[in-house]
Design a protein around this nucleic acid. Structure first.
Lengths: 187, 187
DNA sequence: TTTATTTTTTGACAATTGTCAAAAAGCAAA
DNA sequence: TTTGCTTTTTGACAATTGTCAAAAAATAAA
């Protein structure tokens, strides 16, 4: 929990009252490897902060699993589309490692927004950061070759290589596992 | 200006005071076709609301222009990365048509956030919407074929086809102009 | 360790998309 | 209308990446 508070007060300062309110509203969750935090068709009611562990978001397309993001320590994770719209999720969230998370429901978070302007500000800033991050991934996906995307992964997020099976990484990079294997063999 | 207020109060309700404050802080801008709203290297100090017209965002890569987004009526446009971080922009924003915009500076917007919780809420909600939109584009870019991306464009944003030269659209879809031409010839 | 299962690599070939050059079509200015 | 410029299309060929099948390597279970 201290990790969570430390992390978000990096975004913006928070009064003690707001910090206490947050502390009371997050619930600790421990989940084992391979378990699911969310399965497609469910509405994602929670925003999670990942204290320890790793997980992936994936959806099914033509019978194949498409892994489109990973979460690690200090990440906020959720199915953003489902959490924001409260519609059924098209994606699944599955644990890659046994993990410790802190969860807050959408209703509770909305109440906190109403009570504390500074918490809503925090969320606005968090969205800014996540927007920029996604924009970089988008440009990468759309306008770079498979090799460039892999090299980028090595430089920007090397921890992914160390903690995630190559099959998922290939999917994440938008290439086949075979192509990834060939790229790796000649770097 | 009325269009702007109508649009944003669709996101969330706004008190009369906040509406008036907003009205006073946006500045009207009229720009001709082919002119630039931003060029790479500049810091983007403004967030713009596009009342009438069309524009594109592009950056240079290996001597080529990569068009990665378009803006049309009722869009908020800016170089998000530069506007958020206040670092030099890597992208250019160029008018595709003569346009009418409303501009607000980052400093002014920040002041409004401090004065009106409801305006910061509006921004939080706007980011949510823009995040979802970008996420859809990302999934499209990374995991769909060129033809699928074009069909998607036809269905989701047909106005782009009608108002933007095919060369820019090809770039936007992440394919060569020749490939786009061939895809179109057999739809 | 031995066996079973999963993950990763390799080979052969096919499909997709890109590049370069030139022609055709469209548009604007004179 | 004619001329010049820009945009779009077409052809030939090359490069990239995908698919399928099988082998090899790594990991987990007995």
């Amino acid at each position: 929990m201290q990790q969570l508070l430390t992390h978000i007060t990096n975004y913006a300062p928070l009064s003690n009252e707001a910090q206490h309110a947050l502390q009371n509203c997050f619930e600790k969750i421990t989940i084992a490897k391979h378990e699911f935090l969310l399965t497609q068709g469910q509405v994602c009611r929670y925003l999670y902060f990942l204290e320890k562990g790793a997980l992936r978001g994936f959806y099914n397309l033509d019978g194949k699993e498409i892994t489109h993001w990973f979460g690690f320590e200090k990440d906020f994770v959720t199915s953003f589309h489902s959490f924001i719209t409260q519609e059924a999720a098209v994606e699944n969230i599955q644990l890659l490692e046994g993990s410790i998370l802190w969860a807050i429901s959408k209703e509770t978070l909305t109440q906190l927004f109403n009570q504390y302007h500074e918490i809503e500000r925090l969320m606005r800033i968090a969205y800014e950061k996540y927007y920029i991050r996604l924009e970089e991934r988008f440009v990468n996906a759309q306008f770079k070759t498979a090799s460039e995307r892999y090299e980028n992964l090595l430089q920007q997020t090397p921890h992914i290589i160390e903690r995630v099976p190559l099959g998922y990484i290939a999917s994440y990079l938008g290439i086949s596992q075979e192509t990834l294997s060939r790229i790796r063999s000649k770097f």
